[in-house]
Amino acid sequence: MSVDAATVRRIAHLARIAVSEDEVPHLQGELNAMLAFVEQLSEVNVEGVEPMTSVTPTQMKKRQDVVNDGEIADDIVANAPATEGHFFLVPKVVE
């Protein structure tokens, strides 16, 4: 499988990465090189094979359903590029 220019633009948008028109051919070439490389997986017989979900055979641990953290709003917003009080600021989302 390979991707065309329109697909590259679509993937970029899904990935939320702005891509200019002149970057598209280059990206298309690189993505297709990667896809050509992984193409060899299609020759593996995976009939009846379970997909791996966990590399170590362990039970997923569950935490106690209790409050164990919090009251650290200052820490949470400490690195934010734009804040007001304890809120993150973003451009207007709802008109």
């Binding site: 992984v38 593996v44 995976v46 094979v49 997909p51 791996m52």
Partner: peptide
């Protein structure tokens, strides 16, 4: 299915 699921199955075989 064609990519991710297949790759995870191959991973099972590698292990």
């Amino acid at each position: 299915d064609a990519y991710y699921l297949r790759a995870q199955k191959v991973r099972t075989l590698i292990k």
